[in-house]
Design a protein around this nucleic acid. Structure first.
Lengths: 211, 211, 211, 211
DNA sequence: TATGAATGAGTGTTCATTCAT
DNA sequence: GATGAATGAACACTCATTCAT
């Protein structure tokens, strides 16, 4: 269960810690969105969270802790959203649904994803692994989804191919956010979903078992 | 010719300006690679470039100018590398070669690409468009490559599909750099190239005209 | 009875005030020993005393009050130790015993003396006189001791000489603590006592009445 | 020659470094005198030195560097003053002169000595040894002075006695500064010098060779 | 009487930028 | 053209003190 890096809080009341941290994260995300992590000051974060700079530091140790908390919370939210993908079905239909659901989640969380995407690299060597681990878990979900289809005989791919396809899908989801400046000029999210699944499935079709 | 944002230099001798800026860019890239744009100081840049802080400011106006110059130079280098792709052939073979060449270029320039990828967002609203334009030009090259194949009848895709495929290819190239922490554990660059083209072409095959 | 500066306590129960303050002093001395007054936080003092920061402030008004309480308590302890010096005897023997006893007390309370020595200067203009007064009382004890010997005819010194000798003795006692970094490399406390009394008494001998 | 701890300066011009540091030291001593090291801010030091906070940090790395520089400079000054004591004579007369000269120096430098005395303990474990070494050198000078007298046959003391007497003399000099609140009420510096040498020499007389 | 969460003025330090030489 | 000393706004972080519970 070392899935979380403990961020030290001086305040003991865990309920309060969670509440204050949520305020903090909400404020920070909105600031990081506008100006990035480095250009955001701790005072701004405190203000956006609705409390004083002193109080901010009752709940974190360093500014970087805020970034970690933000990243962690975003991943957690994404993962929660994806938890109910039907991992066991093993049909092409359920695969398609899973991917499309993921794309929609990424659309809803565009801002958060963009923040994470651009700022995660500022995490210390200490915190980064925890975030990367979360990413790998999510990629793993797509791998499982694909793997199931292979096992149920719906399609035929090697392990390596599946591993890479999962990464591609994952990145294509994020891409909708971090390349929005160009993609969202050409497509709506529904266009994007349709086109990407089309391309993906025409590739998958080429591997359908009983064609 | 509004392809370049002019960066003001106090020094008039253009030869000198170019020479000094190249020193500067080389130094800056290596520093940004290690510590990112924000954590690199102008003094460090000057030192790495081999001249004094005062001299640095004879060739730029603000620290951000350095970032712009770096980004611009990286894109220029990538574009030069890709210039000799056989854009006119319109065969699947030449398409495959183009993509594989691009992937190899991205492998060689991993560090630079990573820098650009992570720091471009720190460009001012003023400079960003110039960089994005360069990106679009590069995506445009893949579009052209694909378009040619369609026109020559090798494959059959809609405009929209081609546009998106080009972006996918472009991102998959960058992805090798910015997801190296996981991809390069599983694959060599040759593995990666083979698997990605395989997946891509199995998708393209599904659209081959005369199958 | 203006021998003590009143330190305000919100709590009325005097028994409790004394108990809490003793806890506080014990904790504070040990902290000041390690890190000095300025580097010790009120929170640390509260913790070391075994209660909360809020409670600490029920028994003092400012951080400096703690320092005053500590200094006062140390002096009180020293004075208590010295109270049973035979001030009335007026023999060289009892003088020697008195001095040696003082040196031993200073050895036992090295840490406390060091703390007082180094931190007393941080007392406010308000509190300092009280502490200095205590010091003068102690110097006065040595003066009395010497004076008695003069009066009883054991030695012959002027008032001024006695006054200064008393200060010298007093400082030599403290010196064992605040110069321990060098003295305690060369001597044990017994060496030190013997040497200092030897030197002192060879000076006194020069003033012996009936030599 | 590792007699000095190097304090890093960004500025290269050594002449300038020395000049600025002298300004700095002068300003700092006067501030430390009034409010102590901890209560003095780096901004105040810069201002007292006559330059900006940014400039201050071109000549030091940390606030503690200022303290070290101050202590070092004070010791250097004292040592320079004492350098011309006639160490070789070996007569009681020259010994007396040496001591009296020292006491006068300590009188002139009261403020500085007080500062050093009270703040030196705030030096880091890193810097302290350099300062203590300087102290031991000074004590060593008195030891030498005494030793000469012994060798020349003027007086008769053991090594251990000499070592301790030297420390006593040294501390009695400082004492004039750090106990000024009481001593200077009773004595002028000349009184003090006369009384202390009298006491000291009546002790030494007891050890004169040919009495 | 005891607690500990909240506060915000204050601290040491950094660094992009300027400008006299 | 080149230098590097000077500047000061800005920053992350601390801590004595208060006060509602």
């Amino acid at each position: 269960m070392n899935n979380k890096r403990e961020v030290h809080a001086s305040v003991k009341d865990e309920r309060l810690v969670e509440k204050r941290r949520n305020q903090m994260i909400r404020g920070a995300v909105s600031l990081f969105k506008q100006k990035g992590f480095h250009r955001t000051t701790t005072r701004e974060i405190a203000k956006a969270a609705g409390f004083s700079i002193g109080t901010l530091y009752e709940y974190i140790r360093t500014k970087e802790d805020v970034l970690y908390l933000v990243c962690d919370s975003i991943y957690e939210e994404v993962r929660t959203e994806l938890e109910d993908m039907e991992l066991e079905k093993g049909t092409l239909e359920s695969l398609k649904h899973g991917i499309q659901h993921y794309f929609r989640v990424m659309d809803n969380m565009q801002d958060e994803v963009l923040v994470m995407y651009q700022e995660a690299k500022s995490l210390s060597k200490d915190a980064l692994p925890y975030v990367l681990k979360k990413e790998m878990e999510m990629v793993g979900m797509f791998e499982k989804l694909l793997q199931c289809c292979v096992e149920k005989g719906a399609i035929s791919f090697t392990k390596e191919q599946i591993h890479l396809m999962a990464q591609n899908i994952f990145v294509q989801g994020q891409m909708w956010g971090f390349r929005r400046w160009t993609l969202q000029k050409s497509y709506t999210i529904e266009d994007y979903i349709n086109l990407q699944t089309e391309l993906l499935f025409s590739s998958i079709m080429g591997h359908e078992k009983n064609r």
